[in-house]
Amino acid sequence: MILADKTWQRLRRIPPSYLVFAALLLTLWVLRPHMMNPNILGIFIRQIVPLGILVLGQLLVMRVRSIDLSGGGVILLINYYISSGLFPGASMMTFVAMAIATGLVIGTFNGVMIAKRRVSAVIVTLAVSIVLVGFVQYLSSGKPPGDVPAMFAALYNTKLLGIPTPVLLWIVLTLLMSLFLARTVFGRAVASVGENLSAAHFSGVAVERTVIVAHILAGLMAALAALVQTASIAVGSVRVGLDLPILAVAATILGGVVFGRGEGGVWGPFFGVLSFALLFILMTTLGVDEPGKLIIQGFIILLAAIFYGVRSAKP
């Protein structure tokens, strides 16, 4: 049987995102060779950094069998702080500190509600997002707030070592997360909670604390994503980032991390996000219209999930 074959088994352990990424890169290279320019690709990839950072939090909570849909609300709220002019004269560091504090508070709330109160993670994080979105829209009366301080855009447009700074930030954060999961006790706790909650509990893993910490880190990542997103659009908005959490779930799954299972590690989802970036570049240069993009995106997520679902069925 081909399914029992060793090589086939090994092939199927590769997260779908690597294959999708390679296939998309090849297609782009064949069809639009002039797009294979690091500068052009860099500009496109820079736009997807907020999603990439959000995915780092999403993969963490998904590995402990939870989900975080509150990222959209967090991004909107932080964008509002910075662009509304509510805090005149605040320095950039103040804004960064405020953003991080917001992310930590919301992450803690999510984590405690999910781990201690045992409320459905979908519902809590959805409700938090609804509350935050409503709150921001109420404060701004539905009108877009003002401009973002110029420093943000200036920093966003810089390059370090030839790489756009936001992309570099994303890579550094991904490296940190990968080290954190591979080298620390917390990383082991995450893996064991995902594998089997009860077994982890009876083996002495502080299950509730692990889930709470995962959500706090996800809140922190949402705050960082919000800062990059705000810098990238340079104006306030009442709609920014609302579809990002769902896209983050999709990219994470494409990267081979499904609720409780994390074979894709951190780099699988990383390439999942890059695949989304490439997909948009490819479809845009090929002139695929909006509906076509949606359909292709849906099919890619579905195929990646089927690939993983079928695999999980038989050990």
Binding site: V131, L132, G134, F135, Y138, F259
Partner: peptide, 24 residues
């Protein structure tokens, strides 16, 4: 503000229900 109230009611109602399962 209606959106916020909706979210708050949702949090209140689900926060009051207890269940055994953790996560999704």
């Amino acid at each position: 503000i209606q959106t916020t109230v909706k979210g708050a009611i949702l949090l209140l109602v689900v926060g009051l229900q207890s269940r055994k399962k953790m996560g999704l």
